[in-house]
């Protein structure tokens, strides 16, 4: 079947098999930031934005993305660098494998909440697992990022 998906601002039209998973479709089109960490929708590594909402690309058919806008970290390099610097300043990126999915969801969170509380942050990001950091460094990065953003305003 033929689908057209807008990936990071560029329309891609392709004849795909019905059971192609969105994650594999995106990686095939150069979005290597999108990672598979589980196959059961639990880890959040494959998070991408579909029409602005964070979704799990490992659990979605590429066919379902027909006519939709998909953003991956490849299309959000400026945001990734801005926020990512705060993560890196904590050393909290560690192995890095969960970072793209985590940062995608942080970007989504900040689009929904301007000033989330600690509880809101934890709950919004609960579906982003990280085995290295124990989450503390990620939290410090988020708080410092928010503080700097506030200062800049």
């Amino acid at each position: 079947m033929i689908i057209t998906v807008n990936i990071n601002g560029k329309n891609v039209t392709e004849d795909i098999e019905a059971d192609l998973i969105l994650l594999d479709f995106l990686r095939k089109h150069g979005c290597y930031s999108v990672k598979r960490g589980c196959e059961t929708s639990n880890c959040g590594l494959c998070t991408v934005l579909m029409d602005e909402k964070p979704v799990l690309s490992c659990s979605m058919l590429a066919a379902k993305a027909d006519g939709k806008n998909i953003m991956t970290l490849e299309g959000l390099q400026k945001e990734a660098e801005e926020f990512g610097t705060f993560v890196a300043n904590q050393g909290a990126e560690q192995c890095g494998f969960c970072n793209p999915g985590f940062i995608m969801n942080v970007i989504a969170m900040f689009r929904e909440y301007e000033n989330p509380t600690d509880e809101e942050i934890k709950e919004y990001l609960a579906g982003n697992l990280c085995r290295c950091s124990g989450y503390e460094g990620q939290m410090r990065a988020i708080k410092k990022f928010m503080a700097e953003r506030k200062g800049a305003k």
Partner: peptide, 9 residues
């Protein structure tokens, strides 16, 4: 239930 991305799907 898991996380926001899961519940969006």
């Amino acid at each position: 239930i898991v996380g926001v991305q899961f519940r969006n799907v």
